[in-house]
Amino acid sequence: MTLTTPATASAAVAVAAPGPTRRRRGRRRREAVTGWLFMLPFAILFVVVFLIPILVSIQSSLFAQQSAGDGLYGGGEIVDTFVGFDNFALAIGSQTFWAGMGRVVLYAAIQIPVMIIAALFLALLLDSLIVRRPGFFRLAFFLPFAIPGIIAAMIWLYLYTPEVSPFMQYLPEGTDLMAPGTILFSMANMTTWTYTGYNMLIFLAALQAVPRELYEAARIDGASGWQIATRIKVPLVRGAALLAVLLSIIGTIQLFNEPVIMESANPWMGKDYTPMMLTYNSLLGAVSPSGTGIASAYSVLMAVIAGVLAIVYALLQRRRGEAA
């Protein structure tokens, strides 16, 4: 993008302002210290809740929990044994892992486009001044995101259960929203309901950062409202769309709340329906092989896959952006 926002322009001017070299160096150091101080709260949390757990996971994925002795109960003790990449070999060779991955990728392929387009549409609507009370609608669209995921999933489970659902009786006889062929869509519906408002906010923030002068200029040139939306607004929120899609891909790979709640009522799904469920239940021992080693290997593998998908998507977008 070639647009330079006023803020960065003035900052560039400030840095380039002439002054005595020594004083400038001193001030720079002070500024650097101030900068690092501002960074500190983020840096500490980033290290504690992000870097350390990741490193611990990677370390733990190289160990397996094995019996210390022989006999029927393995000597009654488990020791952590270094096994190199054995856990990864197990994880990569696991059919259940890839079956789960296939489910979430299919899910992502359907759900993310629907949600992103809906979010963009709602954001454009709120930004277009057609709506009388944007504040109210902004909050209303966002509200589902404020409901804790597990509670939302439980509410949806009730809505999908024929015996207690308020609307299932109006659907055609025999409709089963929680059958093997429909449950992915039912869960996609839950996720879409939760996150559309959240993604709308990302788009809305991007839209409101667009200088209003652009629209005036376009209007003077004779652009209609539709043209302003499709030719100016949508291209300008491409960066926001990239962010929203990347976050959605990462989130979807880790799909957990919805399938866990659904599985409690639909045991056919199994404890390994999504990679995240497989990981968690491997840790609990409800799925074998079990233990922290294999569970960590699954999670590292998931992180790598989510990362690769995100990078591929970002690269594709950039190429398209350059081509445009």
């Binding site: 109960y73 393995g74 639909n266 045991p267 056919w268 799904m269 199994g270 404890k271 609990l284 021992g285 409800a286 799925v287 074998s288 079990s290």
Partner: peptide, 16 residues
């Protein structure tokens, strides 16, 4: 026996 918890897999088959 140890590892009985993994037999929850039975529920998955029984659902069919």
């Amino acid at each position: 026996a140890p590892g009985f918890a993994s037999l929850t897999k039975m529920n998955e088959t029984a659902a069919g």
